[in-house]
């Protein structure tokens, strides 16, 4: 499992390092999964017993899966989905406006060969 998390991370980061925004967006999606799995694994794994209390008595000591990371991940999934959608639309719009998907060519905010700032007072 740990090894799988590693593969997830490697792929996500490799995608991030690409110059193409679309690949970076894919990387973001994979990275989301990677982090979720990381949290999930560090909350220890138990097979097949969901954290739902059977019957209506207060039971303790029952060996259920750890509910805490699950709660964390549940929101994380939804948030990372919104984030992913936002990134996707953002890159789509950037592509529309700037006509490129290569981050090297996206120099609108930081143009190349900027002039010196004014030296007066």
């Amino acid at each position: 499992m740990t090894l799988l998390v590693g593969i997830f991370f490697a792929v996500a980061i490799y995608l991030f390092l690409s110059q193409h925004i679309i690949r970076m967006v894919l990387g973001a999606a994979v990275l989301g999964n990677a982090v979720n799995l990381l949290i999930f694994t560090s909350g220890r794994l138990t097979l097949e017993i969901p954290p739902i209390l059977t019957g209506y008595e207060t039971t303790t000591g029952m060996l259920t899966a750890n509910p805490l990371p699950q709660a964390l991940i549940l929101t994380a999934i939804v948030i990372s989905f919104s984030f992913f959608a936002f990134l996707l639309v953002l890159s789509y719009r950037a592509y529309q406006e700037l006509g490129t998907d290569d981050t090297d060519e996206m120099r609108f905010a930081e143009p190349e060969n900027q002039d010196l700032p004014p030296l007066g007072y």
């Binding site: 739902i52 549940l74 929101t75 999934i77 939804v78």
Partner: peptide
């Protein structure tokens, strides 16, 4: 609230 499911 009592079984798998919820708002999300």
């Amino acid at each position: 609230h009592n079984e798998p499911g919820g708002g999300f």
